[in-house]
Amino acid sequence: MNIAIMGFGVVGTGVAKVTEVNAKEIEKRLGFPVYVKTIVDVRTFEGQFADRVVADFAIVENDPEISLVVETIGGVGVAYAFTKRALAAGKHVVTANKQLVAEHGSELLALAKENGVQYLFEASVGGGIPILHPLVQCMGANQIEEVCGILNGTTNYILTSMVSDGVSFEDALAAAKAKGYAEADPTADVEGIDAGRKICILSNLSYGYQTRPEVVPMEGITKITLDDVRIAHDAGYAIKLVGRTVRLEDGDRTAYVAPHLVPHSHPLAHVEDVNNAVVVRGNATGDVMFYGKGAGEMPTASACVSDAMEALAGYGTQPTWSEETGGFQDPKVLKTQYYFRIDGSLSDAAQAFHQVSVLQEGAQTAFLTEEISGYEAEEGAKALNVLAQMRVLGASK
């Protein structure tokens, strides 16, 4: 069968490579060959795939021999428009575009259903880590209580470097850019936006309702200093940027992204460099963890091609969720311990939060609170000169 690729950047190139290099294995598994017939990109290229590149998407849209389109353009502009046109033309669409899925997923899933095709996006959350299919299929008999994880390789690399090499956030970010782990504009990564889009998708699939990115608080790692890293390590914690979505006792849900102190006894504490990991808690299975490379040309391309194979073969379950938003509550309702580093004394800390566990005393005081809600943390912080604030993972309910 013939497929097309929209956008011939890093991931799009990887899709073409995987399809060509593993052609025999793919044909063996499907019973028919898969061939990249057309690539849509406004740029010109040289090399193996140059003769397949066209600038006009209408060529793909109107080609009855193309059954599936892999969208690797990114963003919600052209990618959104072309995806709708492809689905309306009766072509399956596979994507790694987490922004598009997070913001327009329910609409595109409905359009796919209307036209008798599939819209698949395994690569949008974990790159090469299979997480969406296991969540929907393998854990389908569970009520999902919580999903949390390290969902961005760039920030995890930066935090790992701050711990292992003792370098500042700024120097670790510069190294990430030099190695190609961070974009020229790393805002979406370091401010928690990328992880936020991914936790929205995980929340949608876990609870069946649309979780819109604009209602999900997203906090990044730009305020974390080497002082925080050292204090956390000495107290038995690693600092990780974690995305969480939680089923609340009344059946509502919440979600957010923020840096956390993760106990060294927790498996997420040992996920390092550019690796990602997702922990899913089911009411029957307990905790199940998925770990591996969350980004990169070939891992992400692998997930895209696997989705393409599933759609072309006509097997598997189409992930879906309601366009309704359901009951979503502010994550401040969750109770957990909080870490604070303040420009002040222990008496200042105790006056604001009553019982605290001291991690550092001096001109700057670092401490942990008892389990409190986000509202209580916010109220207590008003009287303090707060230099850093983080949640503690594993102490939440």
Rank of each mutant, 00 (worst) to 15 (best):
A81P: 00
A55I: 06
A96P: 06
L111S: 09
L68S: 01
V117L: 13
G128P: 12
T83Y: 09
E61R: 15
G105P: 02
R52L: 13
K98Y: 12
T38L: 15
A23S: 08
E46Y: 06
F45H: 04
N97Q: 12
Q48P: 03
A89F: 07
V70T: 05
T72V: 14
E71R: 06
A86H: 02
E107R: 01
G31K: 05
D63E: 12
K24S: 14
Q48M: 09
F121K: 08
I73L: 14
V101S: 09
A55E: 13
V94S: 07
G126F: 11
V93P: 06
R43D: 13
E25H: 04
L68Y: 01
D41G: 00
Q48V: 10
V60H: 10
T19Q: 04
I39P: 07
A81M: 10
T95I: 09
V18C: 04
D51Q: 14
V36K: 00
V42D: 05
A123T: 10
F121Y: 15
E61C: 06
C138N: 10
N97H: 14
R43N: 15
I39D: 07
N62K: 15
F49T: 05
G116Y: 00
I66P: 01
F45P: 06
H92Q: 09
Q137F: 06
V18Q: 06
A141L: 10
I26A: 00
V94F: 03
A110P: 03
D56V: 08
E25P: 03
K37F: 07
G105H: 00
N62Q: 14
I39G: 03
P130M: 08
E27S: 03
L100I: 08
E122R: 00
R85T: 01
I66A: 01
V18E: 10
F32M: 11
K28D: 15
L30T: 02
I26G: 00
L109G: 00
I131Y: 03
E65N: 04
D63M: 13
V76L: 05
I131P: 01
A55D: 13
Q48N: 07
Y35E: 14
I66D: 01
V101L: 10
T83H: 09
V69Q: 01
S124Q: 12
A89T: 08
I59P: 06
T72N: 14
L30A: 04
P134W: 02
A79E: 07
E27Q: 13
R29Y: 11
K98V: 09
G116N: 00
